[in-house]
């Protein structure tokens, strides 16, 4: 199981703040693909994934027990 957290726009899109997934191990890219399929309009191309409080690369592998957060970029000011 991995835990994924949704923030800001993604929280509204998914209708939840977090959920558990029984898919580990998987890569960051696979997690993003899963999110885009599950939640159309997710916008995976510009969303970062933090794994255990570190921004992860697309090829990084997420293990069972990891805590992931999807972080959308913020540009206003």
């Amino acid at each position: 199981m991995i835990t994924v957290h949704y923030f800001a726009r993604l929280r509204e899109l998914t209708g939840k703040g977090e959920e558990s997934l029984d898919r580990a191990p998987l890569t960051v890219e696979e997690l993003l693909d899963w999110a885009e399929t599950t939640y159309p309009g997710f916008g995976k191309d510009t969303i970062h994934v933090a794994v255990n409080e570190e921004y992860a690369r697309k090829e990084d592998v997420i293990q069972a027990g990891d805590v992931c957060a999807f972080i959308p970029p913020v540009s206003g000011g």
């Binding site: 800001a8 703040g17 921004y55 972080i71």
Partner: peptide, 19 residues
């Protein structure tokens, strides 16, 4: 890097060195 949402009372902090 700090990312917060003051309406939903959430925040996440994550290092960026792997980037």
């Amino acid at each position: 890097l700090l990312h917060f949402d003051v309406w939903n009372n959430t925040s996440v902090e994550a290092g960026i060195s792997r980037m």
